[in-house]
């Protein structure tokens, strides 16, 4: 593994920064080099929010990338922005609950996942982010489900511990959806 760059992008409040931190902590626990960098502009105050996570076995140079390997797009503006930028052979996982169009790129792995709908079905509307993470670890097990679960368990703040089972369930649902969709 040379270096893998992941962008998680969506509306503010969809938990994109948190999802990225879960991946970053997991990478740390598994002795990988990692950088996590948020968008911190006025967009944090109500508009779109994204973070870039880079995982590597070697020292990381740039913490930002123009052409990410993996994009988790939680809304349509994110799909529109990143579909054309993903590296050839990369991956786009898009939250199809919030838009209705096809993915045009054929040189990337793409998965449309109704993350909001699945989240509502399990009674946790705010966990669309972790459903997307679950789908990602199925499609690119650079970090495995076990690793991410352990990472979340290790680093989640005490006051949020009660949300652990919900987070796990959300990841499993996303994982199962990706498994079924991709065969």
């Amino acid at each position: 593994m040379k270096e893998t760059s992941i962008i998680i992008s969506g509306f503010g409040g969809q938990g994109t920064l948190f999802a990225g931190q879960v991946l970053a902590y997991t990478a740390l626990d598994n002795d990988l080099e990692v950088t996590w960098i948020p968008s911190y502009g006025p967009e944090m105050r109500g508009g779109t929010a994204h973070c870039t996570v880079i995982l590597s076995e070697e020292r990381i140079g740039s913490p930002i990338v123009g052409n990410p390997d993996i994009v988790l797009a939680l809304n349509l503006p994110s799909v529109d922005k990143y579909e054309s930028l993903i590296t050839s052979g990369g991956m786009l996982i898009a939250n199809s609950s919030l838009f209705n169009r096809e993915i045009e790129r054929e040189d990337i792995t793409s998965l449309l996942i109704p993350a909001n709908k699945i989240a509502e079905e399990i009674g946790m509307a705010r966990l669309a982010n972790m459903i997307m993470v679950g789908a990602m670890v199925k499609l690119n097990p650079i970090l495995t489900m076990e690793m991410v679960k352990a990472g979340l368990e290790e680093h989640i703040p005490k006051r949020h511990r009660k949300t652990l089972p919900g987070n796990f369930e959300a990841m499993e649902k996303g994982f199962a959806f990706a498994e079924e969709a991709m065969g």
Binding site: Q21, A24, L28, E33, V34, I37, P63
Partner: peptide, 10 residues
């Protein structure tokens, strides 16, 4: 720069 202030790293 702002990148360094905002980023997380081990």
């Amino acid at each position: 720069d702002g990148n360094m202030g905002q980023m997380m790293e081990p």
